[in-house]
Design a binder for these strands. Structure first.
Lengths: 327, 327
DNA sequence: CGCGTTTACGTCGTTCGTAACGATA
DNA sequence: TATCGTTACGAACGACGTAAACGCG
């Protein structure tokens, strides 16, 4: 049993039992993988796959268990390599981010640019993902870092670091009845108009729906999207009242009126979530710092390594944060 | 990075940084280990050990972290091998038991004999250990299975399987004032005599001390030992009143009078504890079954693999158990 | 007949053990 | 001088890639 054999094994599984494809992905030849797999099966004393003819048909039940252990081994091997890369200040690498559209579009660009200035040789990859699946990407190992928002509760699935607090805003066209009220509309008032908001607000457990439900009214969702720009576009087109994150508002949206959201709609917190079972590269922690300067990389590292308790200060609001950054 | 390199690395650490000794233990030559270590350090890009001259003086801080990951990798590799050995019905292996003296001397012999009949080619090793350290042996990886008793609370550090319930017994010489009372003495009565009991009963958190404390009296411990035979010997010598596990009593102890223990002294439960993070060999589970026939190997396996909840029946008392066994 | 796997074979790299050397207490 | 680690070298093994054969749809 060698690390190579285990790496080939999971590559074959991840390639859908296509050895040729797996061979390409691990930069080796197909007969090489075939042979190593055979040797591994020989050493273990049983088949890891069920075969029909010469091709792999399915993973054998016994194979599933072996593969699970093999994945943990490879993860730990990757951890050693990541740790070593940090230790020697390695400046080349890859950072896969799982995040929502609003963060990717309005929050991360500055931070990512800043990271790339400090680490020109890392490549950042944004994994496009639906709001609810961000944490799955992280758990699944597809991403190194997740950035997402909640209405207060701490996301699980890793170490959650609070970045900043933010509010929702109401936007309407200048011609809209709410345009002139000069204050936050109430939930009751909002419930009279069709709303345009994020896809995630359609879910029954969303803080938005709960806020409306608390007032005994039902919001009419005219349209939902993941994309704040789409929401603005449809609000401009008169489809309804927009309800979106303050980060998504430019300094001037001259044809739109921006109002505060009703007080009953709770504040949100943006979080960075780091996988606990994997060693993060330094630049991943530095990206967190680039988004929210009050977070220190070394504190995060200490918590990740279990040498300190997570004890984050109340993060700044988005407005304060951007003011800090521009100073 | 190879599994061999990692194996050598932890062997060197476990040999106290003596490469020559480590080489013997892994059945390889000293230059081989030296070279592999060097290659590993080269690949990682930093020293794993601090050196003075040519000899290893200490593990470098960075080394500690790498070693921790390496141990997990090797553990998982061992898990794969153990799983494979089970899968192909491998009948050769080793079983290291961490247990207390009473279990080793009075409970396990029959079970171990039975296991060795079914698996003649496994070698069972009893790791002699103080009562309180049984679980440490398991956690530390020095043992495959722990057998110990508690006064009710479930031991942690692994999957605890209840084996049987047992009572303490009071023994006195025929000439002792308590010899003729024909009933269980009270705690008050016991507190008037010097006691001879297990080492573990001297600890403040022991159920025995708590029972006495509940009655407002302090036991006088004349002598403690790990060994029930020693306790009996000293009771015979008139050193005091013996208090020991019923398993330790032979069918006839003609020169001793056996009395029930006071009702306030709680019943104990004997447990088998299996490491959760390691794959146990089938014969380890079968040994549990050999001690306590009501435990089925496959149920234990299902719980270990997370496919079932632990839901053990109230285990039989020691007397019932031995009757079952002799039937 | 194409796709994917296995088998065969030659080459190259690596590991391993033996032996000699070096440093340290 | 004994102990322990490193370096040097040769032999053997193993991994890998190329090329060809085999089955299956």
């Amino acid at each position: 049993m060698t690390l190579t054999q285990l790496r080939y094994l999971v590559a074959i599984v991840d390639a859908g039992l296509n050895i040729t494809l797996a061979a390409e992905r691990v930069h080796a030849t197909q007969p090489g993988l075939s042979k190593q797999l055979k040797q591994l099966e020989e050493e273990l004393g049983f088949q890891l796959f069920m075969r029909r003819g010469r091709s792999l048909e399915a993973v054998a039940p016994a194979g599933e268990r072996v593969i699970a252990h093999a994945r943990r081994i490879l993860e730990e091997a990757a951890n050693i390599r990541a740790y070593a890369a940090n230790e020697r200040g390695e400046h080349v690498g890859r950072l896969v981010l799982a995040t929502t559209h609003t963060q990717a579009r309005h929050v991360l660009p500055g931070a990512i640019a800043s990271i790339r200035r400090a680490w020109p040789r890392i490549s950042v990859h944004l994994e496009p993902v639906a709001d609810g699946e961000v944490l799955e990407q992280l758990a699944h190992g597809a991403a190194d870092l997740a950035v997402l928002s909640t209405a207060g509760q701490v996301p699980d699935g890793g170490l959650a670091v609070p970045l900043f607090r933010w509010q929702r805003k109401v936007i309407v066209p200048r011609t809209h009845p709410l345009a002139g009220i000069g204050r936050a509309p109430t939930l009751i008032e909002l419930s009279r108009y069709p709303l345009v908001s994020y896809e995630s607000s359609i879910r029954p457990e969303s803080s938005l729906r709960r806020a409306f439900a608390g007032e005994g009214v039902e919001p009419q969702m005219a349209m939902t999207a993941r994309d704040a720009d789409l929401i603005k576009t449809y609000v401009r087109a008169g489809m309804g009242v927009g309800l979106l994150a303050e980060m998504a508002l430019g300094t001037q949206e001259e044809d739109l009126v921006v109002l505060p959201a009703p007080a009953a709609i709770p504040e949100c917190i943006a979080w960075a979530v780091l996988p606990r079972s994997r060693v993060s590269r330094d630049y991943a922690l530095e990206l967190i710092h680039a988004i929210a300067p009050q977070v220190d990389r070394h504190d995060v590292r200490r918590v990740l390594e279990g040498n300190a308790e997570a004890d984050w200060p109340l993060p700044p609001g988005w407005i304060e944060l951007t003011q800090t950054l521009t100073l």
